[in-house]
């Protein structure tokens, strides 16, 4: 397949060979988007973030749909969105409906996900949809964007969908081979970029990136800065397949204890730990891999972006 043009800033920057950074915003069970928009503004201010992912019901929970927040982040803040769309809740008819609506709203990036199963979420009695899987959704998007038709070949009238889309890869997969082969199937469908789940082990991340090189698609490696010891602990214990380095956990705990009652001091200490861990991590990835950039999932931790990314 001929390479699709870069329609989004994200893909343009990648094509220019820039080492790009994306952030992440998570609309939850809310109606007020001021915090999301504030987070997006903070990211924009750093001048380092090309685009922000907007999540679609992570952990299978019932949250606000990602469509409108993605639009508002672009419209009100001027930061490009990476609109996350899972195949968990919508069949191919609804996905077509949403994608065309997103196109009209000027969204430029979609991140295709399978989505955490509803059985894990707060409406676990719900029927999970999974009419098409994420690889098939990739095929459907390629058809919509490149051929201007729906999945069945019926023409979409009145314009062209100018979007790029990406898929996910999980460096924590064990076994890893089926995960890599699956990414290969998605790449065949025409994905423009890959964003990965969280990595903490730099050597392991490098191995994974090396394996993905065969696909010749830009990869943004996922990192997850740890805003508090509580979050780190939760992540370590409850997010399966991911373990936070023990030293990091210990340091965060100590920082919180040493600065009890002193919010400013605590923030400074936590930020320092994160910067000391992730700055060399990002440098190493930038220096010794072909990664196109970093996907930094510092959700509600936007104050870290400025100091963490000052050298990138």
């Amino acid at each position: 397949m001929a390479k699709r043009p870069a329609y989004s800033n994200l893909c343009k920057k990648i094509q220019e060979g820039k080492f790009v950074i994306t952030g992440e915003l998570e609309p939850k069970k809310i109606l007020d988007l001021s915090e999301i928009l504030h987070g997006a503004e903070e990211m924009k201010k750093t001048g380092k973030i090309v685009a922000a992912n907007v999540t679609d019901g992570p952990q299978g929970d019932a949250y606000m749909s990602s469509l409108v927040p993605s639009y508002l982040v672009q419209e009100k803040v001027g930061l490009e969105a990476v609109w996350q769309v899972t195949v968990r809740d919508r069949n191919r008819v609804a996905l077509f409906g949403d994608v065309t609506a997103g196109a009209v709203l000027g969204l430029k990036n979609i991140l295709v996900l399978t989505g955490d199963h509803t059985a894990l979420g707060d409406h676990n009695r719900a029927r999970a949809v999974y009419d098409i899987d994420s690889t098939q959704f990739c095929e459907m998007l390629s058809i919509m964007i490149d051929q201007g038709t729906d999945y069945e070949g019926n023409e979409i009238v009145g314009g062209k969908i100018e979007m790029n889309y990406g898929c996910v890869a999980n460096p924590n997969s064990n076994p890893r081979e089926p995960e890599v082969l699956k990414v290969g199937r998605k790449v065949e469908q025409g994905v423009d970029f890959i964003q990965t789940q969280t990595a903490f082990d730099v050597d392991d991340a490098k191995d994974f990136l090396k394996e993905l090189e065969q696909f010749n698609v830009p990869v943004l490696l996922g990192i997850f800065p740890l805003k508090s010891h509580g979050i780190a602990w939760y992540f370590d214990n409850y997010i399966p397949g991911v373990s936070v380095p023990k030293d990091l956990l210990k340091a965060l705990k100590k920082a919180e204890k040493d600065n009890k009652g002193d919010k400013k001091g605590k923030y400074a200490a936590l930020d320092k730990i994160n910067i000391e861990f992730f700055e060399p991590f990002i440098k190493e990835i930038k220096k010794s891999t072909k990664a196109a950039g970093i996907h930094c999932m510092a959700v509600e931790y936007e104050r870290l972006f400025g100091p963490l990314l000052k050298d990138f």
């Binding site: 968990r88 999974y130 899987d133 994420s134 890869a169 997969s173």
Partner: peptide, 21 residues
């Protein structure tokens, strides 16, 4: 497969076990 995938795995498995259940 809990998600009826035709092109799996989904990325949610851990040590070869399904995220559901």
């Amino acid at each position: 497969c809990a998600k009826h995938l035709s092109n799996g795995p989904c990325g949610g498995m851990v040590d070869g076990m399904c995220e559901v259940g």
